[in-house]
Simulated assay, not measured.
Amino acid sequence: MIKLTHVDKQYKEHHALADVSVEFPEHQTTVILGPSGAGKSTLLRAINLLERPQQGQMTIGDLTVDFAHPLSNKEVLAVRRKTAMVFQSWNLFPHLTILKNITAGPIHVLKQDPATAEKRALALLEQVGLAETAHRYPGQLSGGQQQRISICRALAMDPYYILFDEPTSALDPELEAQVLRVLQDLAKRQNSMIVVTHNMEFARRVADQIVFVEDGRVEFAGTSAAFFNRPTERIAAFLDAMKF
């Protein structure tokens, strides 16, 4: 489980996270929803330490970090080895083949045997329907295919949790559907996932838990069914605005 306790992140004129306490259960999919600028991505990036809160604690598995104190490089690396982030843009290495993009992390960071890393990468490509792309380069693939490759790259690191920050926002509807099908399959396999998205239909179908964020605060954390049953006037208004 990932647990945040009284986490606070403030910029000069903006309170990005305000006393956030929330849990993300293991082997479940949590979807973070909320209006633009609510703090969704900041919350997600804090888990991976791409954003550093000033207060509060985070427990991730057997590791606890206290944001009130400077984090050592050892602590940062320990957290990041438990998580893998998939961004809006896929950020693949353009000069490496797809296979080498996926195996670079396991070989150089996890110190896996290259043959083992390659076998795992080929299995992941098969899982997302892109086995034939192993020896191609990123520039030869569509955006949707590249995003699926970035998901393979994350999975290859065997993370405790996979974090997705608006993974389909840069894609047209057809390519978005391809990526969402992969995420849905990962959810069925009970991967531990946290997803920031604006796609309400995906959230309704896939999420075990919904976390609703507004003005840097967690205003709701509960089951998908409870959320889409419109438990508050604010959530009802949000869902109506999203044309769900």
Rank of each mutant, 00 (worst) to 15 (best):
L77D: 09
M85Y: 00
N101Y: 00
L77G: 00
R81Q: 14
V86P: 10
S72G: 11
A104T: 14
T103F: 01
K82S: 10
K100G: 02
F67H: 10
K82V: 08
L92H: 07
T83A: 05
Q88T: 11
E75C: 03
F87W: 10
K100I: 00
V109I: 15
A84Y: 05
R80E: 02
V76I: 15
H69I: 12
L77C: 06
Q88W: 12
H69T: 14
W90C: 08
T97N: 10
L71D: 00
T83R: 02
N101S: 05
I102W: 07
I107P: 09
F93C: 07
I98E: 01
H95K: 08
V76P: 08
D66K: 00
P106K: 09
S89P: 00
R80F: 05
T97K: 10
V86Y: 08
K82N: 13
A78Q: 13
H69G: 04
D66T: 02
N101R: 02
I98D: 04
L99D: 03
F67S: 05
K82G: 14
A68R: 13
A68M: 08
P94Y: 05
V86I: 14
P106N: 11
N73K: 13
S72E: 06
M85F: 00
G105A: 15
I107R: 13
A84K: 01
F93H: 06
T83E: 03
T97S: 15
V109C: 10
N91D: 12
E75N: 03
H69W: 10
I98M: 02
K74C: 06
T83Y: 01
V109F: 11
I107L: 09
H108R: 14
W90N: 12
V79R: 02
G105S: 13
T83Q: 04
D66R: 00
N91A: 13
L99N: 03
G105Y: 09
A68G: 15
A104L: 15
M85D: 01
V79D: 01
F93D: 06
F67M: 09
W90Q: 13
V65W: 03
A78L: 06
R80V: 05
L92C: 07
H69C: 09
G105F: 08
S72W: 03
H108A: 13
I107K: 13
L96T: 06
V86G: 09
E75I: 00
K100W: 01
L99P: 01
S72Y: 04
K74D: 12
S72T: 15
P70D: 10
P94L: 07
V76L: 14
K74G: 03
V65H: 04
L99M: 08
H108K: 15
R81V: 03
N73S: 15
N101Q: 03
V86F: 10
F93A: 12
P106S: 07
M85R: 02
A68V: 02
H108L: 14
I107G: 11
H95W: 04
V76T: 14
W90Y: 15
R80N: 04
Q88N: 11
A68I: 03
K74H: 13
Q88F: 11
T83G: 05
L99G: 04
M85G: 01
F87I: 04
K74Q: 15
